[in-house]
Amino acid sequence: MSQPHERIAAALRRAPGEPLALVPYITAGYPSRERFIETLREVAGAGDVVEVGVPFSDPMADGVTIQRASQAAIAAGVSLRWILAALAEAGPMPAPVVLMSYLNPLLNHGFERLADDAARSGVAGFIVPDLPLEESQALRTALEARGLALVQLVTPATPPARLARLCEASRGFVYAVTVTGITGGDSGLPSTVSEYLDRVRSVSSLPVCAGFGVRRPEHLRQLSGHADGVVVGSALVEELEAGRDPAAFLRGLRDG
């Protein structure tokens, strides 16, 4: 049986000419704590890998939408422990689940215990936006022992030598941040994005997924052929807040 991080990569890898893979993001337990698993199942069914946000009190890389979602989820009693327990109880999902969390809740849980609990809950990997490669050894070691991914993020500001190191160290996929900024922007993707993504793809042996500011079909058309997949976060959270069908929104993005 393949390792969890290999399942992520397999779900996202795209041959030239194939449509982009979709990585939808939801904040766990938002807008409804009771409907978390139901929402996750719908979203995972419409995506190739699903990203579940662990709410944190100080989400410094996130814009207003995910800040609002995180704050409400914490107020509703959502925590890392609760998420892991809910996932364990829910059983297999239609797509591999990756947890997006700031470092402190993970540190607080303890890395060894985290890797065990995550593996038991069917989680395939982690994205940790405030954990640069240089500080990540202890977590990577703990996750690798369980075959779990620690996805590295790269940005347009990342110099070439560092880009190669990050792609080499990443597992599951490489998360290519499209814009210099926080999540949830709506100012369009930079004109240089395709050239930047081509550069990332040329050094990465893993699938490359573009994220931050991806919210409309035209964005997917712009990225098509330059990435394996896209991460859709704030735009999807806003759909959920408005009470609309997340799967319909994701299909609309893909087919639009």
Partner: peptide, 20 residues
């Protein structure tokens, strides 16, 4: 050189800021 005072300190920042 890693910004550590014994075990404390370090640099836990988003990738976008590392170069800066």
């Amino acid at each position: 050189e890693h910004g550590r005072f014994g075990p404390f300190g370090g640099r836990y920042a988003p990738e976008t800021l590392i170069t800066a």
